[in-house]
């Protein structure tokens, strides 16, 4: 039952990712990506990581994707953008990336053969994660917070000028 659920979610994740990356309309692609992320969240839950699953939904599928939505709305690419995307997705563009990605995948799978193991299925509770996070990993938390701060400042800086200019133009 659990295994069936796992493979189903994996299949959905793969399918949704593939569809997301081949869409011509950015908004559609975003929806598929969210589906993919939700499927991965299910996988996390099944593997006994409920905390990670929750974060995947809240932050990844929620906050980050919402950012994308905002930007797509601001840019307002429209129909001609879709036409252009379609034009760009012609078949011959697929060859080199496809071959390279396939080779890499093959290599990864080859590497996996050497590690026969199963998932334990033991759940790791949010409490354990929290204890570890603010115990041995507290320095990593600090670094992550600084990274986020830097991202905040950078995004503010980059985005503000864009907004100011647009207002002036208006």
């Amino acid at each position: 039952m659990m295994a069936t659920l796992f493979y189903l979610a994996a299949f959905i994740a793969l399918l949704a990712t593939g569809l997301a990356l081949t869409r011509t309309n950015a908004a559609h692609a975003l929806i598929y990506l969210i589906v993919s992320l939700l499927a991965v969240a299910v996988l996390f839950f099944l593997m006994g990581a409920p905390f990670a699953a929750a974060l995947e939904i809240v932050i990844y599928a929620g906050a980050i994707m919402v950012l994308f939505v905002f930007v797509i709305m601001m840019l307002n690419v429209g129909q001609e953008g879709i036409e252009r995307e379609r034009e760009w997705l012609s078949a011959r563009n697929w060859v080199v990336p496809g071959v390279l990605a396939a080779i890499l995948l093959l290599e990864l799978l080859l590497a996996l053969r050497a590690a026969p193991a199963t998932t334990s299925g033991v759940a790791v509770t949010p409490k354990e994660v929290g204890l570890a996070l603010f115990g041995p990993y507290v320095l990593a938390v600090e670094i992550a917070s600084m990274l986020l701060l830097a991202g905040l400042v950078g995004a503010y800086h980059l985005g503000r000028r864009f907004i100011v200019r647009r207002e002036r133009r208006r």
């Binding site: 080199v96 990336p97 390279l100 990605a101 080779i103 890499l104 290599e107 990864l108 080859l110 590497a111 050497a114």
Partner: peptide
């Protein structure tokens, strides 16, 4: 990006051969 991936492919191949 493509050239980086190409390099990555090569690197992984070398690692596999050594392993």
């Amino acid at each position: 990006a493509t050239s980086m991936v190409f390099g990555l492919v090569l690197l992984v191949a070398i690692m596999l051969r050594n392993a």
